[in-house]
Simulated assay, not measured.
Amino acid sequence: MATLKQYKKSDGTTAWFYKLYMGKDPITGKERRTTRRGFKTKKEACLDLARLQLEIESKGLNNNSVRTYRELYNLWMSQHTLNIRNTTEQRVRNYFTNQILPSFGNMKLDSITPSICQKILTDWATKYQSFQKIRSYASQVFNYGILLGVIDNNPMERTITPKSISNSTEIKEEVYSKEELHLFFECLHKLKDERALVFFRIASYTGARKGEILGLTWRDIDFDNQTIRFNKTLVELSDGSLCINPTKKDKSKRVISIDNGTSRILKKWKRSVTKKNLSRGIRIDNIDDIPVISTIKGNKKRDFLYKGYPNHVMDKVARKFPDMKIIKVHGFRKTHATLLFEAGAQVKDVQDRLGHSSSKTTMDIYIKVSKNRQNETVELFESYMNG
């Protein structure tokens, strides 16, 4: 649909213009219209209008509506989020918000060259340990542009991946020895923090992840068979809200046996939870649905605890017991694996117990323990030979 009209210019002369409705953009779904002015005669305006209509009919709508990287990213993200978890979406959006869009966002797509991408990629490598993931996501947007016909090639693919400076420094995560773990639990007993004792007992005696433990309900614990089922995890979104997600990988879904001591501690904690609720006038109709590590909100409803809880416990231990060695919460998972190997467990059994999707993760811990054992073996041999 087109409209032709004559209009008066600022200098008093007259000219012609036309408005044309060009249909919906096949990429964005938005309606497109154009207005063209400055034709001296009606005939000139009609000829230009006819030329434009013929071009649209023969070639379809021009994809100029997607001009910048940010516009293309918005289209890509609207499709990408349909197939990913909420936590993955949050992580991907953070990559774009903090690294990718500040570098590429306002650039015109046709102005982004391989040399520009190389300069940006080199800069990322000096700042971010995860720069290769950032590169991958930035590249996916370019590939989507090719799929839509907005661009002809992916300039990020014609770059050389630099070595990461941050990878040159090995990050070592500490674990507790058997003696140090006992000292840690002595600290919790002195703090009289029964809930913290239960959390870290599960962490160090099952090797479960923080989110898996915080996501446990009493339904997941089978006292008759002395097992715990891990099939979900508690996640905290960027807006601070909590939600329960299924475990990310099938290998993480597992039912593992627990020792007698852990079973006794959990039974005692369950009785304590019921008793504390009754003392506050709260009757639990179905305790199976109550989180094992829970809190009581203002409405007296027991709910999942915030993700930072175990970290705050470690901070408290550090303040109250300055001589106590402090490790990361994830270090309790590695502590469990290390102590299992020291006790003589097999690699496959430890992998299944911890829910490692790759045996490499388990083997890395095993190799470290094996090296320590080699030193002990040499010392025993030397002592024997010199005896």
Rank of each mutant, 00 (worst) to 15 (best):
I282K: 02
K40H: 15
F184H: 07
N277A: 11
I256R: 05
K43W: 10
S111A: 07
S263K: 11
F17I: 09
T335E: 07
I284E: 13
Q6E: 14
G215Y: 07
N311D: 14
T28W: 09
F200N: 00
S252L: 02
Y306L: 11
D224L: 10
G281P: 04
L181A: 11
C187Q: 09
G298V: 15
S65G: 11
G29P: 00
T97H: 15
E157M: 07
K40N: 13
E57F: 00
N154L: 04
T247P: 05
E180F: 12
N74W: 05
K320H: 14
K24Q: 14
I258C: 04
D315V: 03
G211S: 11
L183F: 14
R264K: 14
L183A: 13
K8Y: 05
E170D: 14
V292M: 05
I202V: 15
N86T: 13
N245S: 10
L148G: 12
H80E: 03
F200L: 07
L47A: 15
R195F: 04
M314P: 00
F199W: 00
H189T: 14
T233Q: 12
T3F: 13
N260P: 07
E89R: 12
I221V: 12
N225M: 07
N277Y: 10
G331W: 06
Q226R: 01
L188P: 01
I221T: 08
T97I: 06
K270Y: 08
R195P: 05
F131I: 09
I151L: 02
D349H: 09
V92K: 04
Q118P: 07
V317N: 05
T68I: 08
S204D: 01
K9N: 15
K43C: 12
V369E: 04
L380S: 09
K348S: 05
L109F: 08
L234Y: 09
N245F: 02
I213C: 04
K325A: 08
F17A: 03
L147W: 14
F185K: 04
Y144K: 13
D11S: 02
Q118L: 11
S139Y: 02
S358N: 08
L47E: 15
R271Y: 13
D110P: 01
N154S: 03
N277F: 04
L181V: 02
R91P: 03
F223V: 03
I290H: 01
E382W: 07
T126A: 02
M77E: 10
R319Y: 03
R32F: 08
S177Y: 01
V378A: 06
Y144W: 09
S263Y: 06
R254W: 12
L52M: 11
C117V: 00
Q99P: 11
K253S: 14
E170M: 13
Q351G: 04
K30P: 14
